[in-house]
Amino acid sequence: MSIVEETRRALLVLFPELAAVEEEARAAAQAEAEIQAAEEAAAAEKDENEMDALLAERDAVRLDAESAKQSVAADEDNLEAAEQEDPAAEKKEKEPEEEGPRENGIVLTDHASRGTDIDVFCDPDQVVAAAGIMDEAGFFLEAITGVDWIKEDKLEVIYDYNQYGQEQCRVVVRTFVSRTEPEIPTIMDVMPSADWHERETHDFYGIRFTGHPNLIPILLPEDADFHPLLKDFTP
């Protein structure tokens, strides 16, 4: 299993419904395989009496699998989009802000064209859990930054994780917070390097990292009460 796939599986913990869907899909795939095996077995045995019973059972399983498939359809698309390079899906990735609020989930991205491998979108209170997963998987924090989507009245907080392995896997964890009350829990307890990055993001965007013990300006003057990277900032 490649590190990208491994990391994606690890990150699925964050999204129980996605994980459940994937589990169902996997179960469905397994069931299909079972059916196939059963069919083969049936073909081998050629016992008509048992064949009827088998057919009934197969129909039941297939129905289950199909219903499961339908429920995952949307997410499956998302998951496989990057791998299949479906142009529509790619467009959708590239313009998240035009699509309205993005759904929570994990998207695999193309490293050659985007520079990242896994794109995770989660709720603000999930970033600590995400950081914990990344820490356990041996990732280091590359950067924390924000993006001011002033038109949508939202602030995006982006965490970049990377690892030292020879195989490339860069993970982006992003979340939205409101522009008026930008608050997000700190991940400093998990990743000590987040200390300065969070202070910097607080400087530039005014995002309050709750639980950060020392959220004072790091790059701006110590009495700075402005946040220059907000789009409505005027010096």
Binding site: K94, E97, R114, G115, T116, E142, V147, D160, R170
Partner: peptide, 24 residues
């Protein structure tokens, strides 16, 4: 450039320099 965000890393004399570029 098309909207979206892009990351590019290079190795400077001091380590991994990353540029995250968000385009609209």
């Amino acid at each position: 450039p098309a909207a979206g965000d892009y990351w590019a890393s290079v190795e400077t004399a001091r380590g991994n320099l990353g540029h995250r570029l968000v385009c609209d």
